[in-house]
Nucleic acid binder design. Structure first.
Length: 345
DNA sequence: AATGCGGGGAC
DNA sequence: GTCCCAGCATT
């Protein structure tokens, strides 16, 4: 495609975006810190999910300094429900690095941005272009699909997509607007399935549309194998206190909290579970089961109730568990426990 | 180049 | 049920 055609494409896209842009919390006031937080949250996460979390996180940690000074557990707790909790740890570490290495100011260029934990090629380009108007390309899932369709390519190598994105952002009048508009179009019009080409502001530029092959792009990729595991969660109350434990510092839900949970490849009976637990438990009874899906696992949660005379471990009031970072599945278990507590069987 | 890492909305 | 999302770090 020639530069002039590219320029017409970017012009049409920008014109559409000026009237179609959604009113999103992080678009209200642009600054490096808000962009860093929102972009971290938006990694592999849909806009609607981030809207729920962004404002409360910003109120809790309004500045780079406040985030840098926070405890990691507080940051994780503020991230609860968003998933991919490593992002929260990286964001926390990034805030510390900004304080020590960048005088408290989010860096403006991609080279410096890339030195921050959790900031990769996409995030650096997004902040540099959207906040600081640098002509840096970005490629996310939306842009990848959109450019593949624009040029009628079934499975273009991602590196070629980056080159194409760079060509386009170079001729765009406002790089940040162009980048945001590309993602907005991908999220709202040029969707993975059933793209709404009739409503597309750049349909006349689209090679896939011209060849009626837009629905063949992108080609579906093979789903990753899922292993099936069983998590046996044990709700133990002593008077009004609940026994909780911290997960290991590696792997799934690392460093987060849970009621004592034992993982195994098969579902265990109450008796065999009792033998696996690190503490003595009486009257262990299976109460509920539910399935929790993650990207690589299908987890069957089996929720047991029991009693113990053991004293060791962390005991806290069930109402106070809100301070601890816990997975959505463990939150669900606490909800069940509270129901039992309210209406004992 | 593959893999691990969450959770939920859309279909 | 499946797909996929404003990706990144590690191996």
């Amino acid at each position: 495609m020639t530069p002039s055609r590219d320029a017409r494409f970017t012009d049409d896209l920008a014109a559409w975006f000026s009237s179609a842009a959604r009113d999103l919390p992080w678009r209200r006031s642009r600054n490096g810190y808000a962009a860093l937080v929102s972009e971290a949250m938006l990694q592999q996460t849909q806009v609607s999910r981030v809207i729920e979390k962004f404002s409360t996180f910003m109120e809790r940690f309004p500045t780079v300094q406040s985030l840098a000074n926070a405890e990691e557990q507080q940051v994780l707790a503020a991230w609860q429900g968003l998933g991919y909790y490593r992002r929260a740890r990286h964001l926390h570490a990034a805030a510390k690095k900004i304080m020590t290495d960048y005088d408290g100011q989010v860096p403006r260029d991609v080279v410096q941005l890339r030195t921050l934990p959790g900031v990769g090629r996409y995030t650096a380009g997004a902040i540099a272009s959207i906040v600081f108007s640098h002509p840096e390309p970005i490629v996310d899932g939306n842009v990848q699909r959109l450019l593949a369709r624009l040029d009628a390519r079934h499975s273009p190598p991602v590196e070629e997509i980056w080159i194409r994105a760079e060509q386009l952002v170079r001729v765009a009048e406002k790089p940040g607007v162009f980048n945001e508009a590309m993602m907005e179009l991908g999220a709202t019009i040029c969707t993975p399935k059933s793209p709404r080409c009739d409503a597309c502001p750049v349909a006349q530029h689209c090679s896939a549309r011209k060849r009626k092959m837009q629905s063949e792009i992108p080609v579906p990729k093979a789903a990753p194998r899922q292993e099936h595991v069983h998590h046996h969660a044990v709700v133990v109350m002593r008077r009004n206190l609940l026994l909780v434990e911290q997960r290991p510092e590696t792997g799934l839900w690392s460093n987060m909290w849970q009621v004592p949970t034992f993982e195994s490849m098969t579902a265990l009976s109450a008796q065999s579970l009792a033998e696996q637990l690190k503490f003595r438990v009486n009257d262990l009874t299976k109460r509920e089961s539910f399935t929790h899906m993650t990207t690589h696992r299908r987890i069957s949660f089996h929720v047991f109730a029991g009693r113990t005379r053991a004293r060791r471990g962390h005991w806290l009031q069930i109402d106070d568990t809100g301070e601890l970072p816990m997975s959505a599945a463990q939150r669900r278990i606490l909800d069940l426990a509270q129901q039992w507590f309210a209406t004992p069987v």
